[in-house]
């Protein structure tokens, strides 16, 4: 899991590492795509609309929310507003990734932003922090994001054709949470990260009743603030 690399990897090696890092997450992503495809058919969308949504929006939780609102007869603006609110945490991923991509041209920034899902962010930020001097690091997010994108489109289509072949009761989506936990654990030896984690976990659970999954961004911001303050506090004591 932790390969401390000192030499700079070539673009191709970064791209392949991105695919390799993202591969285990497919256990959780594939059933999610099937469920989305099947659910969208039940909701009454045409296959073209379903495929277009997976390709354009490219965000699992937001797409499910879209279906729920559409089924309830909501108008286009209410649907779009709610889907945006559900995905607002992605702005934090964007801020976190921005310094690594600041020097890149638009033709890179646009596709990288488009591919910035929870799963792709999680796997790539870990590599970026682990390997500071990597000029071709954006190829990692490209590889990891593209694998996710391709599998998301394929499983959406399969879901349309064959339905949710994997029953949701299997709980395979839990694989995504398990992966995120595996990524988090090495950080938690640092006290400010541990404080950020505990704060975010508690806020996420107790703020859950908030609408539009706003508990996630509240927990994220609270955790970031506590981590930051805790780091400053320790810095002062050290001096």
């Amino acid at each position: 899991m932790t390969h401390a690399l000192n030499h700079a990897l070539a673009p191709r090696a970064q791209f392949l590492l991105g695919i390799k890092d993202q591969a285990p997450l497919m256990v959780g992503v594939m059933p999610f795509g099937l469920i989305f495809g099947a659910l969208a058919v039940e909701t009454g969308l045409t296959p073209l609309q379903i495929v277009a949504m997976s390709a354009i929006t490219f965000g699992g939780a937001g797409q499910i929310v879209f279906l729920q609102l559409y089924a309830s007869g909501a108008n286009a603006f209410l649907i779009s507003g709610t889907v945006s609110a559900v995905n607002i945490r992605h702005a934090l991923y964007s801020a976190s990734m921005a310094p690594y991509f600041a020097h890149l041209p638009w033709r890179w920034k646009i596709p990288l932003a488009y591919l910035l899902t929870d799963e792709a962010y999680a796997m790539s930020i870990r590599r970026f922090e682990m390997m500071p001097a990597q000029p071709a690091r954006h190829y990692h997010l490209l590889g990891s994001g593209l694998l996710l994108w391709v599998m998301w489109q394929i499983t959406t289509m399969l879901g349309i054709v064959v339905g949710a072949a994997i029953p949701p009761s299997l709980g395979l989506e839990f694989a995504i949470a398990l992966t995120f936990m595996a990524i988090l654990i090495p950080h938690l030896r640092l006290i400010p990260h541990l404080n950020a984690c505990l704060t975010s976990g508690v806020v996420a659970v107790f703020a859950y009743p908030l609408p539009w999954k706003l508990s996630l961004i509240c927990a994220g911001l609270a955790g970031m603030l506590v981590g930051f303050l805790s780091e400053r506090q320790r810095g002062k004591r050290g001096r």
Binding site: Y93, L184, A219, G227
Partner: peptide, 13 residues
């Protein structure tokens, strides 16, 4: 702290 905080929120939920 973005990754620690946001990913924890997803796992906890």
């Amino acid at each position: 702290y973005v990754s620690t905080a946001v990913l924890t929120a997803i796992v906890a939920t």
